[in-house]
Design a protein around this nucleic acid. Structure first.
Length: 237
DNA sequence: AGCACA
C-alpha cells in the first residue's frame, strides 16, 4: 500500500496537448499568440488551434514537434495562471491532422455521411502535401508585446504598458535578491518589491515602459525552479 | 463542461 501516485504508464501520450479552462473572453488571435508565447519554451510548436464555436470555446490545441515537449509542457504548465484562470492540460485524444499529414497517415475525415462509400479511395498514395504546416514562426517570437494580462480587465483587452511589471507564479523560496539579479540585467532597472503577505508575486520597477517591456519579453516564462515558469504582465496602474 | 483540424 501507500504507493505514491504512480502515474499510469499507459497514458496515451500525444505530441499535441489539449487545454481547457481558458478565458473565453480573449480573442482567438490573441489567445493563440499568447499560448505560443508561453509554450514555446518547451520545444518547437507546429501549430496552435482554437475555435470559437460553442462546443470549443475556452479550449485550444498546441501541437509540438515532439511528444517530449508536450510532456514537459503538460507537467510544468498544469494549472498555470493564464488570463487569471488556471490552465487545465491533457494530451489530445487523437493525432493532429498536421502531424498525420507529415506522417503520411492523414486520411481526410468525411463529414457526416450517412452512407460511407468505402469503395472509393481517391488518390490515396502519398500525396498528403508534406510540410504544408509549420505555421508558426517559433524562431523569432512575434511578441512585441506579450498580451496575457487580459485577466483583471478581460474584455478591455491587455493591460496598458506600465514601467512596473507584475510577476506571478514565483516559487515560495524566491527572494528579492534573486529577482534583482535577474531583472537588473535589463536597462532601466530600478527596484524589486515583494509583498510579504502574498508569496509568489513581485513588482519590478523600471524607469520607463520601453525598458520594462524589454525585460518582460526577455524574462517571460523564466523558471527559478523547474515547475514555476514566471508569468510577467504589466502592473495595473 | 466541452477533443479539432475552420
Amino acid at each position: 500500500m501507500a504507493e505514491e501516485e504512480l502515474e499510469a504508464p499507459e497514458i496515451h501520450k500525444n505530441q499535441t496537448i489539449y487545454i481547457n479552462n481558458l478565458n473565453e473572453k480573449i480573442k482567438l488571435d490573441e489567445l493563440k499568440r499568447s499560448l505560443n508565447a508561453v509554450f514555446s519554451q518547451f520545444g518547437k510548436i507546429t501549430e496552435v488551434l482554437a475555435f470559437k464555436t460553442l462546443k470549443h470555446k475556452g479550449q485550444a490545441w498546441v501541437v509540438f514537434e515532439d511528444v517530449s515537449s508536450a510532456n514537459s509542457a503538460l507537467r510544468q504548465m498544469q494549472g498555470f495562471p493564464f488570463y487569471d484562470k488556471p490552465m487545465r492540460i491533457q494530451y489530445a485524444k487523437t493525432k493532429s491532422d498536421c502531424i498525420a499529414k507529415a506522417d503520411g497517415t492523414f486520411v481526410p475525415r468525411e463529414k457526416k455521411r450517412k452512407h460511407e462509400d468505402r469503395g472509393r479511395k481517391k488518390r490515396d498514395s502519398h500525396d498528403a502535401g508534406r510540410g504544408q504546416h509549420l505555421a508558426f514562426h517559433h524562431g523569432a517570437p512575434p511578441l512585441s508585446q506579450i498580451p496575457f494580462m487580459g485577466g483583471r480587465g478581460g474584455s478591455d483587452g491587455p493591460a496598458p504598458p506600465n514601467n512596473i511589471l507584475f510577476v506571478q507564479n514565483l516559487p515560495h523560496q524566491t527572494t528579492s535578491m534573486m529577482l534583482q539579479m535577474l531583472f537588473s540585467q535589463c536597462q532601466g532597472f530600478k527596484e524589486v518589491r515583494m509583498v510579504e503577505a502574498k508569496p509568489g508575486i513581485a513588482f519590478i520597477e523600471y524607469e520607463n515602459e520601453m525598458q520594462s517591456t524589454v525585460a518582460m519579453q526577455g524574462l517571460q516564462g523564466f523558471k527559478i525552479t523547474d515547475d514555476h515558469p514566471m508569468l510577467i504582465t504589466y502592473a495595473k496602474k
